[in-house]
Nucleic acid binder design. Sequence first.
RNA 1: GGGCGAUUGGCGCAGCGGGAGCGCAGCACCCUUACAAGGUGAAGGUCGCAGGUUCAAAUCCUGCAUCGCCCACCA
Length: 883
Amino acid sequence: MTEIPSTYDPKVVEGPVFTSWMTGGYFGCEIVEGVRPYAVVIPPPNVTGSLHMGHALNNTIQDVVVRRQRMLGRPTRWVVGTDHAGIATQNKVEQKLAREGKDRHDLGRDAFVEACWEWRREHGSIIIEQLKRMGCSCDYSDEWFTMDESYQRAVRRVFIDWFEQGLIYRGKRIINWCPRCTTALSDIEVEHEDLDGHLWHIRYPLASPSGGIDHVVVATTRPETMLGDTCVAVHPDDDRYREFVGATVVLPLMEREIPIVADDYVDPSFGTGAVKVTPAHDPNDFEIGERHDCPKVNVLEADGTVSAQGGAYAGLDRYEARRRIVADLDEAGLLVRIDDHVHSVGHCYRCHTVVEPWLSDQWFVDMQPLAAPAIEAVRDGRVTFHPKRWENIYFHWMENIRDWCISRQLWWGHRIPVFYCDGCGWIGASMEDREACPACGGGVRQDEDVLDTWFSSQLWPFATFGWPGDDPRLDYFYPTSMLSTARDILFLWVARMIMSGMYCMDGAIPFDDVIIHPTVFNAEGRRMSKSLGTGVDPLDLMEHYGADGMRFGLMLQVTGAQDLKFSEEKLVSSRNFANKIWNASRFVLMNLDGYVAGAPDPRTVADRWILSRLANLTARVDEGMETYEFGEVSRALYDFFWSEYCDWYIELAKGRLTDPDQRASVQRVLVFVLDQALRLLHPFMPFVTEAIWREVPHLGEERAASLMVAAWPDAAALAGCADEGAERSIERLIDVVSGIRAVRARYQLPPKQRLSVVFRTVGDAETNWVENEFTEMSRLAGVDEFVAGTSAAKPPHSATVLASGLEVYVPLEGIVDFEAEAARLRREQDKVAAEHEKLTRKLGNEGFLSKAAPEIIAKDRARAAELAETLEVIEAQLAELES
RNA sequence: GGGCGAUUGGCGCAGCGGGAGCGCAGCACCCUUACAAGGUGAAGGUCGCAGGUUCAAAUCCUGCAUCGCCCACCA
């Protein structure tokens, strides 16, 4: 075994281990009748994407959960695949064309769509390969894509069902328009940002001045929209304008007469109390226009330039038009004032261009009927969010849900399956493409638009099990068990999966648990972004720290908070931890000569202690995993392995391994605890644990070929190892050893300087305890000899260690600096006295004695007694030193 | 305008009703035959501020401050 290198090298280990998993076929999963499965669907990354920190975190979370479930013996399936990502992919392909000096219209629709497929073939597997690099145990044998043929049928099925039930309708509405992507967006695809803008006050002359007043002043943040104004609105109760309601103003620059109308929407206290109304470019104005029967003049083209309706400004870009209009108004003396004004401006979530509210024909889904059962499912706990507070955010959005604009003016995506007959006016949706009109037999044309990408992604938890076909996997794996995702797609994706899932699957929820993990920010607290250069590349991190180091480092940082300020230092610790595991294992493997497999046979208090700690760890890991407290679980694993198993148990084992009487038993405990710890660690650090585990001798039972499918430690069985007495005993011994080590450090005694110490005990029982238990520990303190007794005398020139109520004298012939020792004792005296006083006051408090729990009072009394004793000892020592 | 989260040693964070912890950095000593990506030890904090509840508050409540996020038809 000595050929195992002394440093863990992920580069050497990870590749072969992953290959062995693939060839072992552990990622797939068969249906096992009668056994409850565990299923997870991956949030499908965009085909255009490559792994970022959000993916790294999210997929580690899923893999940790999935690997544990697999080890628990449940048929486990983690569905993997990618999203066609309509706008994102179309943009990428258009950028590629642009580099060749072309745009999509040069190619035509069919060729462009083919180019998108080509892109997918070239780039679509990149992110899947990156997931493999991370060690994600997805079912790679059954990869899905949201444009797969069967997936297309699912999309079409849902569209048609909703269409036929009247949940999908077409309407001319104000929608959010991205002039760069030239498509409509849904409300939640718009990101609002407060920007410094202006409030332009513009004079609109009255057509017929009266009472000495010849104009009204309106205020606007978007002066260019005035080209499409079709009325001016004031509040009906506003005395300033009451007499002008019904009059007309002459729209400046356009020289069009438009009416002044009274409408409750207007807030008299804002601006001038008079609002210019542009029904085609503002949702509120649209409503006002409807109420007052005003025309809707669309003054913008799809690309954001002014349309022919914009008169002299036609053809100008919207911002150029704004500048010119403001200048022209100024010149005409109609610009009254410009105020600074901060307002919220919507941006496209894909290209960050400022979106325009724009009047156009679009398809919508009536969401309220779909939302009602989905609200109920969370309300009654069928679906549970972790952390739970996200449920309130879900409720708030769902209870105020608005109709969903699902049509996109793109070419890449699921084409809307609606056919129109221009001959007879027939309109219908259909599963199969239509050539002829079922009504008149004439030709039909298909709707030009495609569906919002999220319309297809919402079907992911059941379309990936073959729905709407009759795939046996659907019955078996749906509902899935858990969904883990980032909070920014709670509405875009999660809520819609619950709604469409319950609709399509007869009211059955798509998943039991939803994990909303924290968003990863960089050290400056800024969002990780490739374009801003504020991101960290997970591939680089894996290069430096290994996949296990990155995974564990991330998991250490997952708490219930909503943000995660990414700390690379945690990855350093985690990489070191992987190395620690490697070397501890190496130590065990190097000391197995003569090992005979078998269950552990605890002989010493240390044996019982480490088994008890293992039992405790296993229970904590189980509990933490059930509640998705990944940070807590990974910390527990780290602390156990490093601070207990390595720092103490292995150190103690070193001595016993050389003792022929003890060697066999200590080997068994070493091996057993290592084996169990590797199993517990495996979901978090799959590579290093797998590589080592294969070298660890089995315990006698039939052994799995891979740790991936080895049995998860049984907390209930281990519970029998719980041993409070052993734990207390070892805690005291650790206290004593640390105290003696502190003395060594204080006087800089080299390791070669062996010590001989004296214990003063309070009774024979304690004397016996010291004599029995300290022998094993003495090695770790560099102590060769010791004596214990109630009347043991303090040897001259010795330092005193006070630990867990024990008094230990460390003779330091001629080495002790008494001044320094006295000073140290005085400092300790202050500290102990302060604590003792605090505790004494507490114990003298009637309220405390009458109301606190008895065990708390008993504990405090014991502690106070111990402190009092310690004080006495310190005083005695000081008296001795100073006399 | 409404809601949510954060505020703990130099930095990053955990703890969330009964003796302030971890990692990193820094300090001292140590290449002790698993590991220097290591070991041992020492040092470092009136737990944002102000009230309140309680025998007891970093932990619960109220208010405030700072930072951040989300939602909202803020001309």
